[in-house]
Design a protein around this nucleic acid. Structure first.
Length: 428
RNA sequence: AGAGGAGUGGCAGAGUGGUCGAAUGCGGCGGUCUUGAAAACCGUUGUACCGCGAGGUACCGGGGGUUCGAAUCCCUCCUCCUCUGCCA
């Protein structure tokens, strides 16, 4: 959620930012916000005055009662009747206006920062970096959804039997590869200074609102009716919400957390013919890095996090490219996002495996996540950032496809100490 | 899941209808003393909103209600503790 004070002081920037995102009728929305805010302030002033008067009279009554001046007290009481209903009305309008303002603010996405390219959709994203080259595959090389059958390492049909489409079962070497990658990613993050967190993978409504999944992505999360809980779409949600309603001291910064969790996404309406195999799932594993930084550092930290993720891809020997997402393709809560895509040779396709974002104060404003730079300073909102490091299924898809040989699938050497095998073959 | 108890400031803990944003202790910050530190003593110490300011308003787990007036009474939800039951 954007800061109201920011909107007030930077109307032009906000309107231009929303235009860049192709947000409909930005000017109209912003003037509505400002109008509601004005209404809120004047109503609050009236309300406060009215409450003040009530408080004063009530104290008088108490005083008179104590002095035994019953009749005088009753006289003052009579005066409060009218005031009371006025106060009630004012209070009602105030909360109605506040709710309307809050709901309107919740529909406004984050403002893209200056480095974000203009554009409408994914075709306008900027490729800012590219590394590695496509492997030369042997004749008869196949996409991963065929390879997993041949080597019997991932079974979609069994997943359909147990749950439904998009919930694969990992078997044998497939399960071990998956577990190895989780450990590898967590160990790498730990070496880079991140603290490992194992959060709940079920969250309440307040957490969903805190990081901005609610109300924006309500239909995209699995919901548990009895408890009004949601299955997490990413570890970002529980890990960032650890800091909801928290005022950190300066020496607690920066916060660098990493967590592995399964992630659940309904992906309602987003399935197409091109989405096959591991490319899109309802449940998948992901290691997520989450950082909380002082505002002045967040821009540099975003780049640092990208470097970190790129390092992982290089260690896995995967060809990849980095996209600076254009304003139209930016997530609702993000001010800038870099996507990492690996090249999948057998599909001749780029697969998104990481998304690294700076939310600036958009999340911390909802979370009320602040820090105090010194004892006599007012608390200041922090910046939150996060990134996948990494999401597993598409990495597995890329490894299977890029590393296939007539004799089996070669495991990247950095993973071999974790898997305990160098090749996936039919003998496993 | 059933029965009982409890949720108050960074922490501990008093307060059961009026001058309570809230005693007291601890902790934190500033100072006096000291070469320095400790001890002792003095002062200070929540957040948000409105207001140029003086100042005002709200917040005692969340929400609603009773009352001129609620931390205090009522309803409801949440959380924690104890016992019983169940169970990785």
């Amino acid at each position: 959620m954007l800061l109201l004070s920011y909107i007030k002081e930077n109307q032009d920037t906000v309107v231009k930012g929303l235009e860049k995102r192709h947000f409909p009728e930005p000017e109209k929305t912003i003037s509505k916000v400002l109008l509601l805010d004005e209404e809120r302030r004047s109503t609050q002033q009236e309300n406060d005055e009215s409450l003040h008067e009530m408080n004063t009279l009530s104290k008088q009554i108490g005083q008179l009662m104590r002095e035994g001046k019953r009749d005088e007290a009753e006289a003052v009481k009579a005066k409060t009747t009218e005031l009371k209903s006025k106060t009630k009305d004012l209070g009602d309008s105030l909360s109605r206006i506040q709710l309307e303002l809050e709901n309107l603010l919740l529909t406004i996405p984050n403002i893209p920062n200056e480095e974000v390219p203009a554009g409408k959709g994914e075709e306008d994203n900027d490729v800012v970096f590219q590394h590695g080259k496509a492997p030369e595959l042997h004749d008869g090389a196949r996409p991963h959804w065929e390879l997993i059958k041949e080597y019997d390492i991932i079974d979609f049909d069994l997943g359909i039997k147990i749950t439904g489409a998009g919930f694969p079962v990992y078997k044998g070497a497939g399960a071990r590869l998956q577990r190895s990658m989780i450990n590898f990613f967590l160990d790498e993050a730990r070496r880079a200074g991140y603290t490992e967190i194992q959060p709940p993978i079920v969250i309440n409504e307040a957490s969903g609102r805190g990081t901005g999944q609610l109300p924006d992505k309500d239909g995209q999360m699995y919901h548990i009716n009895e408890e009004n809980f949601y299955l997490i779409p990413t570890a970002e949600v529980p890990i960032t919400n650890l800091y909801r309603d928290v005022i950190l001291s300066e020496d607690e910064l920066p916060v660098m957390n990493v967590g592995f969790t399964p992630c659940f996404r309904r992906e309602a309406g987003s399935w197409g013919a091109h989405v096959r195999g591991l490319n899109r799932l309802h449940q998948f594993d992901k290691v997520e890095i989450v950082r909380i930084e002082k505002p002045e550092n967040s821009a540099d930290i975003l780049k640092e996090m990208c470097q970190y993720v790129q390092g992982l891809l290089e260690k896995l020997e995967l060809p990849y490219r980095v996209l600076n997402l254009c304003a139209g393709d930016l997530g609702f809560t993000s001010s800038q996002t870099f996507d990492m895509e690996v090249y999948s040779a057998a599909q001749d396709k780029w697969l998104e495996v990481s998304s690294v974002s700076n939310f600036r104060t958009f999340q911390s404003n909802r979370l009320k996540l602040r820090y105090r730079s010194s004892a006599d300073q007012k608390p200041e909102l922090l910046h939150t950032l996060n990134g996948s490091a990494l999401a597993l299924p598409r990495i597995i898809a890329a490894i299977l496809e890029n590393n296939q040989t007539p004799d089996g699938i070669r495991i990247p050497s950095v993973l071999v100490p974790y898997t305990g095998f160098e090749m996936i073959t039919n003998q496993d």
